[in-house]
Structures are given as structure tokens and as C-alpha cells.
Design a protein around this nucleic acid. Structure first.
Lengths: 110, 110
DNA sequence: CCGGTATGCTACAGAAAATATAGCAACTTG
DNA sequence: CAAGTTGCTATATTTTCTGTAGCATACCGG
């Protein structure tokens, strides 16, 4: 079980708890970015997420709990896991990475 | 030692090797986002980075090597670790997270 | 030339995190 | 009532990360 991870409280690598540091800690945990990415278009079920990324249920559950704690994701009974409006904003900020990553790929050796 | 992690080759959670998946894998490794963040303004020495984030030298070194492999960071003898132009572009895309994180913090319980 | 400092690391034991797999309890569907 | 879907837990094993010590090279002042 991971601790709640809120702005104002110390995060890994930052005693200050400055929001950006807490955010970078959160996003820097394995599968977190990927989970947000998978939710960018539509809600998804637990197993759909698990299958999409190929991680173990334990860690998927842990990351989803952290994202819910962070108010970025909610579990809706009828549609499954989906982004909150806050989570949607964050994902919107991440979308440009998609285009950029293609450029990046062209600059690297195969 | 970690494998090179290039677009086109499979990444964690994506056999396809689509650049965005490789990128999310890279950025989702512990300390990677934080290291890029620390380099956003000016070059930094190995120990400065290590002290700033508070991770062990082994992992700092490993992450920096990955970032160099990814052509996002270079080690310059006279100034230390610094972003490449590609790395600079990526960090530019990440900068909006700073402002957003403050908003996010206001929406969360203390 | 010698001691001190800065540099980028490497080594290694122990702790923590993630994986792989099995399975459970509640619910819906046929 | 049997089978499927749901979100999730449990546990053993493997992988990753931490904490600490230390190394090799280079520079700098005395």
C-alpha cells in the first residue's frame, strides 16, 4: 500500500511537497502515464486496462487507487474507470507528446 | 543494466514499439521525469542532480544513460549534463504541467 | 610533489516494488 | 443454477531501487 501522495506533503525526492514535485513523482511511477493514456478517449474496465498495458492486477489496482486519490480518475459503475475533468485536463497537456514522439523516433537510430 | 529502449523496438507494455509507447515507458521510469525537470533551465553536474532528487548514484547514472541513449541529454565536459535540442523540446512540452499542478493542488484536500 | 577537492561513476548488500499466477466474492445473464 | 463479468486480493518469485562505501582521473594551491 502506497501513501496518499498529496500536494503539500513530501513526495519522493522533495520534502517540500511542491505540487509539481508531487505530480512528477506520481507520473513517474510505473504504468501511471500509460494508464492515463489508455483513458484519454473513453472509459475502460479494469481488465481492459490490465490487458492493454500487460501489468499485473496488483499494480494496476494500486496505480488506479493513486489516481483516484489524486482526483484524476474515478470508477463509474456503469462505464468503468474514466478521467475526471481534472484528469482530462492533465491528459490534454500530455497529448502533444504523441506528435512529438514521432519526430523523436525519426531522430533516433533504428 | 537496462536495454536501449528505442522507438520501433518493443517497450514495456507495448510489443508494437510505437514511439508514444516507448516514450511513456521511458518517462514512466523512476526519476526520469524529475531529471529532465532539473535540467530544464541549466546544465547540471552528476552530483548536483543526485543531490537535487535524492536518489542513489546507481539509478541516477542508469537513468542518465537511458536519456543519453534517447538523445535527450548529453554530457558536456565543461558544463555537465544538459538537454539536447530534442530534449529541450520535450521539456518545453512538459512545462505546462507546472502551472497545472498548482491548480490541481487547489482541488485536493490538504 | 602533496594534500585536498571535484568529477563521473561502480560495487554490493539489503529493502522495496513489480510480476506472474491463482483465486475470490458480488453481480448479471442465459 | 451455471457461466461470465466485474473489481480486486494473496502469495511466492523476480526485478528494481536504496544506502553506503569507494575508485580513478583530473585539477588546484602551497
Amino acid at each position: 500500500m502506497t501513501k496518499p501522495l498529496r500536494p503539500g506533503k513530501p513526495a519522493r525526492g522533495s520534502a517540500s511537497g511542491r505540487p509539481i514535485m508531487v505530480l512528477l513523482d506520481l507520473l513517474g511511477r510505473r504504468w501511471t502515464l500509460r494508464l492515463l493514456w489508455e483513458l484519454r478517449e473513453k472509459p475502460r474496465r479494469f481488465r481492459a486496462l490490465q490487458d492493454a498495458i500487460g501489468a499485473s492486477p496488483a499494480i494496476v489496482n494500486e496505480r488506479l487507487r493513486e489516481l483516484r486519490d489524486a482526483k484524476l480518475v474515478v470508477l463509474d459503475d456503469t462505464s468503468g474507470y474514466c478521467l475526471t475533468s481534472l484528469g482530462g485536463e492533465l491528459v490534454t497537456l500530455l497529448l502533444p507528446l504523441h506528435v512529438w514522439s514521432e519526430k523523436w523516433a525519426r531522430h533516433l537510430p533504428k
